[in-house]
Structure formats: C-alpha cells, structure tokens
C-alpha cells in the first residue's frame, strides 16, 4: 500500500510541476503568438456576421435564435447577449454534449450553473472569468438587437431606438436614454461615468455597458449601501460577486439571470459610445416602455 501512495505521489508531483512550469514559465512565447493571432481575426464569429451583413439585416430575437439549435449551427442567449458558439464545440472544457443541449435557447441559467437543465432556482457557481473572456469571442450582438445592414454590428443609436420602438407596448417604468435629435452628444467614457458617483445620480459600468441605476435604489434586494459604493465606477466584478470590494480574483455566485434582465432596463449605452442627448442630465430621463419580465425582487 505504501508503494501505491508513493507511485501516485510521484506521478502527481511530476505532472503538476510539468504543467506549472509549462504553463507559467514557458507559456509567454505562445501567448504573444496568440495575441497577434486574435488581433488579426478579432472576433471568432466574423464569418457569421459577414454572412448576415450580406443577406441584409437580422433581429437577434428569440425566434431567430431558436433557428440555430444544433451543434453544427448553434446560437444561444446568455444574459441578454447572443453568441454563435458553433466553432467552440470541441474546445469546451465541460464537453460538447452539455453545451449542445442549450443550442437555440436562453442558456443564461445553464451558463451560470454549468447545468444544462438548470432553472433559475438551481444553485451552483458559474463559469470563471476566464471562460467569460473566451465567450466574448463568440459575441454576435445583444438580444433583440438588429444586426447587419450598413455595418456588421448595430450602431448604438439604432439599438436604443430599436428598443424604444419594439418595446413600447406594456407599462413598466424603464429608464432609457432619450435619443433626441439635438446635436448635443455625450461620450459614455469612464470619466463621464465617474461624474455620476452618488446615490442621487448613480451610473456604473458592468461588462463594458453603462447603466444609470439612480431609480433602482430602494428596489435592490441586496440593499442600497452596497450598490451606492459602486456608483461612478466599473462595477463588473462587484456585480459578478455581489461584493462591492471584490477584486477579479474573488469568486462568488453571480447575480441571477432575472437580476440581469432587470439591469438591462437601466441600460444607457456601451462604454465609450456616443449617445445623443439634449442636455447631459436628460440622459437619466425616464420613459415608459416595456420590461417583458416581472420584476420580482423577493428571490434574487
């Protein structure tokens, strides 16, 4: 029995040291190579985007996503973003089967829990931030965004307009940037966001999107103070970990997909996007538009 332990320990030592040395010491060269590589291709779904552009335009809505429901043509929706992960099969650490089950669906819960049959009640910690950055390479566009046409990706203005146009049926209050025709425009830079750093005027950045959550205070299940601590900052990690002091190495359970869909109601625009605005302040105007889901806070 001592032999068994010794042999196992030996194999363990050799493999771990080999991987650590190869991965942390010698990887530098390969990494540089990869950076140049990805800078050439940019986005791994460029092909799909070009095809869509060639065929005209396309709205990334649920009927459209559900058409791409097989491994050979697989789109999915995660936290309000649409991804074409067809070329990712084979590289998924969790295997291709589990991923294939989610093709053509809203895979937010599955992604958050690593369980293809998950419901929002399923617990389990989600994918790592590394997985997240990998996923970004397969980004097609936002949910209900119209892509194609003049450019591969929708311009921010069309996106906002689109949202107001299609969603103006029901009656939940949603703050949306008023896209007024005035010439005054505003860049959603980090500096601009930083100006809105108090509870009475609170913007923050999550995953390179800017949100104005001033009107959400009082409704946050996690309380006001934790959220107020992130006003004017990049709150991505805080949002992912539910910890205002989190660093990128902190690992905790993220907000639910319901929380994510609530958040989308407070979307102002993408980071560094230029938005039209009559005055700087009106960017926090509230217009009555839809929010397709119920905002139930009790079970975040």
């Amino acid at each position: 029995m001592k032999k068994l332990s010794t042999i196992s320990l030996f194999i363990f030592g050799v493999v771990v040291i080999a991987i650590l040395v190869a991965g942390l010491v010698f990887y530098q060269n390969g990494k540089n190579g990869q950076i140049t590589d990805s800078s050439k291709t940019g986005n791994l779904v460029q092909g799909t985007l070009s095809k869509i552009a060639a065929a005209g335009s396309l709205t990334l809505d649920m009927p459209e996503i559900s058409k791409h429901n097989k491994q050979s043509d697989c789109w999915l929706l995660i936290s309000g973003k649409v991804y074409d992960i067809t070329s990712f099969f084979g590289s998924h650490p969790g295997g291709s089967k589990v991923m294939a089950e989610t093709c053509g669906t809203d895979a937010t819960d599955a992604y958050m829990t690593k369980d293809p049959n998950a419901t929002s009640a399923t617990s389990g910690s989600g994918h790592s931030s590394r997985a997240k950055s990998m996923l970004a390479n397969y980004y097609l566009g936002d949910f209900n965004q119209k892509i194609g046409g003049q450019s591969n990706k929708a311009t921010p203005t069309t996106q906002v307009t689109n949202q107001t146009n299609t969603d103006s049926n029901s009656s939940t209050t949603t703050p949306v940037v008023t896209t007024s025709p005035t010439s005054t425009s505003l860049t959603l830079s980090v500096q601009e966001v930083a100006k809105h750093n108090k509870q009475s005027d609170c913007w923050f950045i999550i995953s390179d999107k800017v949100y104005n959550i001033t009107n959400f205070f009082g409704s946050h299940p996690g309380g006001n103070s934790v959220m107020a601590a992130t006003c004017g900052t990049d709150a991505t990690v805080a949002y992912m970990t539910k910890d205002p002091n989190a660093t990128s190495s902190t690992s905790r359970q993220a907000h639910s997909s319901r929380a994510t869909s609530m958040l989308s109601s407070y979307y102002v625009g993408d980071l560094n996007q230029v938005v039209g605005s009559s005055t700087t302040k009106t960017s926090s105007n509230i217009v009555t538009t839809s929010n397709s889901r119920n905002t139930r806070y009790e079970d975040d």
């Binding site: 991987i19 991965g23 390969g30 990494k31 969790g94 590394r130």
Partner: peptide
Amino acid sequence: KYLAISTKEAAMFFV
C-alpha cells in the same frame, strides 16, 4: 480538459 485549451489554462487550475 484545460490542457486541451492551453498549458496556461492548465497551470492556472493548480494556482
């Protein structure tokens, strides 16, 4: 499975 992606990913698994 991480080795299948890269040795860097695999090494990070042990960190």
